[in-house]
Design a binder for these strands. Structure first.
Length: 744
DNA sequence: TTAGGGTTAG
């Protein structure tokens, strides 16, 4: 074995290593050893580096023991060898061995500490990483810019940006100036957590600190503009990217495509896309997403087909993007088709693929289908994640799904998923809408970081359940905890005062909100005020408020007024409101029915345009129906159904005291349409669930006075709690009373 | 001779 032999091997291996061809490096190294040539301390670090990149733990171990045997691991000049062994173990994910090497090293340099800290950060062993930071200082090695960047970037990537920012402060305090890497880590961390404005603040801070942004930092800032849809700032950054010569760079190009597409500038996005010389998977996926989101599914699909011919393999994101594009544009069939075939094209479906189908179904109102897909997903042993849960919860926000909300709640714990503010709020909503106020309160009480949205959810839940007193108590608590109310909170507060008949308190809130909270009254606040005045019979004041309001009243405002006029038997004002509503919502069946009745009563005609479909896609001639669930089975009833309940109904109808409300203008009489469906559902519930306290019913039309009285009487006589959700109100009948206090 | 940063879908 001559000295020249080793030199020759070193030169060859070095040449491959420089080009990043680590597979070849390892192959050569094996041949070299087989031919009896052993690496010196310089060559062994090269090969170890290749092991680290290729994550070849087996070969790495051999080299480690060789280094020990040959005495490369004990002296000061051997620190680089020790470091490369350490890094090899870290990159191969074997932290235990890495730590053993670290502990045995007699001398360590800054790189040693940094590598070990990097290892712990990468496996999220934060405590160990922080211990080492303290330990290195104690041993007289001050953390350098790389040490700080390792910690800051790891925390930023894990989403813990508060800690990352705290470390930035410590870094500056210790006299180490943040560099472009530090800032870029923070910018991209904020972007990933959907905190675009803070990302941009970091970028600006970097520029103010005199650190020149490079292509990477500009790309991150551009993606912040994309999520915030800041086209002008995005354009400015575009020209900055041109100045630092990184516009044709794939990275900047990709983020520009995304930014222009998200800002609706699809032509600009296409232009940039075309100019990227070496398009990668990000470029194609971003452009496909751009077209799909703009509604051009055909163009998106053309690119989807073309990319593989251009040498770029489609990945799960490509397929998911296309599937999501189809489902968002209403072509569910194509979406499901792609979902079915993707695996035959060698691309494995992931959680996101399932989530897209679930979220799309919920979004398009197909709750049952969303639920079926969710169960299918679980039977395929695909673990639901945070997004799955967030997407599926709204599908359960109704009265006949209360047990499903509990099931999904358990699922969160079972899969050890994060219970953050968004999920907690969605659960509060779902529990409340499924009729379980107590559980909504439990989720709220257990949830530690409550935002204004959480408070709004729980306040609205109490309003829905007819507990305005508690809603107002919560509002006080919220203020005591220093949370500032927003638009929604104040509209809820006015509504709560309305429910309690406290006109002056409600009016005061309305009149002072601009002063007290710097919030200008919007349509919802006006509607709440009309409701408040209308409930206490101050119809004239309510009308004056509408007449003088600075905004154009919408259907919510007129609905509130109409309800008040009807409840107080004022035919003239009811007529007036119906005329206004018929202009705003020409297809609303309730308005149409009202118009006919009012016409009969007043002799005046209302010109109601006869649109066939109204805004929620429901047909005018859709039959009035309701559903109830008993032992996981759903039963649907329509008006006049003959379901063999005559005997029960006859018994129920014999309940004495049927006093009917005031102005009976909105209901279709049972003589005309047959027995109302909610009566059938109540009778069915009574006979088929004798052991359950609650009967839960969802109805697609408002309850009439007659059935409302009926439900009250039944709840008292049979000691049941009857919950009926109609499009306007949740009625909770108990002991002969309803939570809506007979005003809905 | 070792250590740190980026862009796409739900």
């Amino acid at each position: 074995m001559s000295h020249r032999d080793l030199l020759a091997w070193s030169a060859m291996i070095g040449a491959y290593a420089i080009r990043g061809m680590y597979g070849e490096v390892l192959a050569l190294a094996v041949r070299m050893v087989v031919e009896g040539v052993l690496p010196d301390r310089f060559l062994i670090t090269r090969i170890l580096q290749a092991c680290a990149y290729a994550e070849d733990l087996e070969l790495g171990r051999l080299l480690h023991s060789m280094a020990v045997r040959r005495g490369f691991m004990g002296r000061v000049k051997d620190v680089p060898v020790g470091n490369s062994v350490l890094v090899m173990y870290v990159k191969c994910g074997n932290l235990v061995c890495a730590r053993k090497v670290f502990d045995k090293m007699v001398c360590r340099d800054l790189g040693t500490w940094n590598s070990m800290i990097f290892g712990y950060c990468r496996s999220a062993e934060w405590e160990e990483a922080r211990c080492l930071l303290d330990a290195m200082r104690q041993e007289g090695t001050e953390p350098g810019v790389v040490t700080w960047n390792t910690l800051i970037s790891s925390y930023a990537r894990s989403g813990d940006l508060d800690v990352a920012m705290e470390l930035l402060g410590q870094m500056e305090e210790s006299g180490v100036a943040p560099d472009v890497v530090t800032w870029t880590s923070l910018v991209s961390g904020f972007v990933h957590m959907d905190r675009g404005d803070e990302a941009l603040q970091c970028f600006i801070q970097m520029c103010l600190a005199g650190v020149e942004p490079n292509g990477m930092s500009i790309a991150s800032a551009i993606s912040a503009c994309a999520s915030l849809k800041l086209l002008n700032l995005g354009r400015e950054l575009h020209s900055r990217a041109i100045k630092v010569c990184s516009v044709n760079n794939v990275l900047s190009g990709n983020s520009l495509v995304d930014m222009y597409a998200k800002c609706g500038e699809i032509v600009a996005a296409w232009r940039i896309f075309n100019e990227i010389p070496d398009k990668d998977i990000f470029s194609w996926n971003s452009m496909i997403a751009g077209y799909a989101q703009a509604g051009y599914c055909g163009k998106a699909y053309n690119l989807f087909c073309k990319m593989e011919n251009c040498g770029v393999r489609r990945n799960a994101i490509t397929w998911n993007t296309m599937i999501s594009g189809y489902i968002r544009n209403g072509d569910d069939e194509r979406a499901f088709e792609l979902f079915q075939i993707m695996e035959s094209y060698g691309v494995k479906r992931d959680t996101a693929s399932w989530n897209i189908l679930i979220a799309g179904s919920v979004h398009n109102g197909y709750y049952d289908r969303a639920l079926r897909i969710f169960h299918q997903m679980r039977s395929h042993l695909v673990r639901p994640d945070y997004i799955t849960i967030l997407s599926i919860i709204p599908a359960f926000a109704n009265l006949v799904a209360s047990w499903k909300v509990r099931e999904i709640h358990a699922c969160i714990f079972h899969h050890n998923l994060e219970m953050d503010g968004k999920i907690a709020n969605a659960l509060i909503n779902a529990y409340s809408k499924s009729g379980d106020l107590a559980s909504a309160c439990t989720v709220f009480d257990m949830h530690s970081s409550r935002s204004v949205i959480s408070w709004n959810c729980i306040i609205l839940a109490h309003l829905l359940h007819g507990s305005p007193n508690e809603a107002l108590d919560l509002f006080c608590q919220m203020k005591q905890e220093g949370v500032l109310p927003d638009h929604t909170t104040l509209a809820a507060v006015i509504k709560a005062y309305g429910l309690m008949g406290k006109v002056s308190e409600g009016s005061r809130t309305f009149l002072n909100m601009a002063n007290d909270y710097n919030i200008t009254p919007d349509l919802d606040h006006h509607a709440a005020m009309v409701d408040l005045l209308g409930r206490s019979g101050r119809l004239k004041e309510a009308y004056e408020l509408i007449d003088e309001m600075p905004l154009i009243p919408n259907s919510t405002v007129w609905e509130a007024f109409l309800t008040a006029a009807v409840k107080h038997g004022n035919v003239r004002l009811a007529h007036l409101a119906a005329v206004e509503l018929s202009v705003i919502e020409p297809g609303d069946p309730r308005v149409q029915r009202l118009a006919t009745t009012l016409q009969d009563l007043t002799g005046k005609s209302i010109d109601v345009p006869k649109a066939m479909v109204h805004n929620k896609g429901r047909k005018l001639d859709e039959v009035e129906s309701c559903s109830t669930e008993i032992r996981n089975k759903l039963y649907v009833f329509s008006n006049g159904d003959n379901v063999g309940l005559e005997h029960t109904l006859a018994e129920l109808n014999s309940v004495p005291d049927f006093s009917i409300g005031t102005l009976d203008v909105e209901e279709e009489k049972e003589e005309v349409v047959g027995v109302h469906c909610e009566k059938l559902a109540i009778a069915f519930g009574l006979t088929n669930s004798p052991h359950f306290k609650n009967i839960r019913i969802i109805k697609n039309e408002r309850m009439c006075n007659h059935c409302h009285t009926f439900a009250k009487l039944v709840s008292k006589k049979y000691e049941r709690r009857i919950l009926i959700k109609d499009p306007k109100c949740l009625h909770k009948f108990e002991d002969g009373k309803c939570s809506c206090e007979d005003y809905w």
